[in-house]
């Protein structure tokens, strides 16, 4: 039982990381119908910026954090202008490939600028964790779970209860109609990319104390987060969260009770099974993509 509780906590913690990155996927997908394969690199870039500011330059944590987020907003904007926007009238295929190119570019630019050594980034708390009975709760995982809850709540409020949020929703549902209603569609898409880069950045900075800051950190998380997005039903925020948490838990228990080396395979196996037997995702109604 102790064992199960400990595994469950870790699974949920990892799952929350996937869910956080998956949120960014969902946003961009809803706004542009495009899967951003560079979403994981947003996390990686943010973590490296944070290392430069708070470790190398020794600036205070919060200043570094806010500046990192500013940098991510910029990355999101440039990403939109350089990768998505010029291709917005083409089919999804060129866009997917361009985002893959962007992912290679971002990862290797950081490698060229900073070198291949993994870096350490401290967390927000000095205490590494709490022993709660038989279960050890890593404080950083607790923080990630909390931030995920807050961000999901914020996102819900933002999309359902603010004018800007509603405009964004209108844009994602029908661009032509939105522009007829006087909504500046390009600006809305820009905003989506910026927000999504911020989300990715927050996820990156949050997981850095656990996974360390490395060039590869983004890619692995992003693939799992993407799987979570599909399991949750594309474009469904709640689905992506549940999908992420489920993946984290399945992976952890799979590793404990089936096989450690094949751990990464579980996520993909679950994904393939979902695609074959329940392609609409957990709650989704949409079967295929928009025609």
């Amino acid at each position: 039982m102790d064992l199960i509780l400990q595994l469950l906590f870790t699974g949920i913690g990892i799952g929350a990381v996937y869910a956080l990155v998956a949120l960014g996927f969902v946003l961009i997908f809803r706004a542009t119908n495009v899967v951003n394969f560079a979403q994981g690199e947003f996390s990686m870039v943010a973590a490296f910026v944070m290392v430069v500011l708070s470790v190398d330059l020794g600036w205070p944590y919060w200043v570094s954090f806010l500046l990192s987020l500013c940098a991510m907003a910029l990355v999101g904007a440039v990403f939109n202008l350089g990768v998505y926007y010029p291709l917005r009238h083409r089919s999804f295929l060129p866009v997917i490939i361009a985002t893959i190119g962007a992912s290679i570019f971002l990862a290797n630019s950081v490698l060229a600028l900073y070198g291949p050594q993994p870096q350490v980034l401290q967390g927000w708390f000095d205490t590494p964790g709490i022993q709660l009975g038989p279960v050890y709760l890593d404080s950083q995982y607790l923080l990630i779970i909390a931030v995920t809850i807050v961000l999901v709540a914020f996102q819900y409020w933002f999309f359902e209860h603010t004018l800007l949020g509603k405009k964004l929703q209108a844009t994602s549902q029908d661009k032509e109609m939105a522009s007829l209603l006087g909504i500046p569609v390009s600006a809305m898409i820009m905003l989506t990319f910026v927000y999504s880069a911020l989300l990715g950045g927050i996820a990156g900075i949050l997981v850095a104390p656990i996974l360390f800051v490395s060039i590869q950190m983004g890619a692995t998380i992003a693939l799992k987060a993407f799987a979570a997005t599909i399991i949750g039903g594309f474009g469904d925020v709640a689905g992506a969260i549940i999908g992420g948490l489920a993946l984290g838990v399945i992976e952890t228990f799979g590793a404990a009770y089936v096989s450690v080396p094949y751990k990464d395979g579980f996520a993909f196996l679950v994904l393939v099974l979902f695609l074959i037997f329940r392609p609409q995702g957990l709650f989704g109604e949409r079967v295929a993509e928009k025609a």
Binding site: L87, I97, G101, I104, S109, L111, A112
Partner: peptide, 16 residues
């Protein structure tokens, strides 16, 4: 390290 692949990635975007 990385410079070549960074250019590689950039080239993919530019080709597309």
């Amino acid at each position: 390290p990385g410079l070549y692949l960074a250019i590689y990635g950039l080239a993919v975007i530019l080709i597309i």
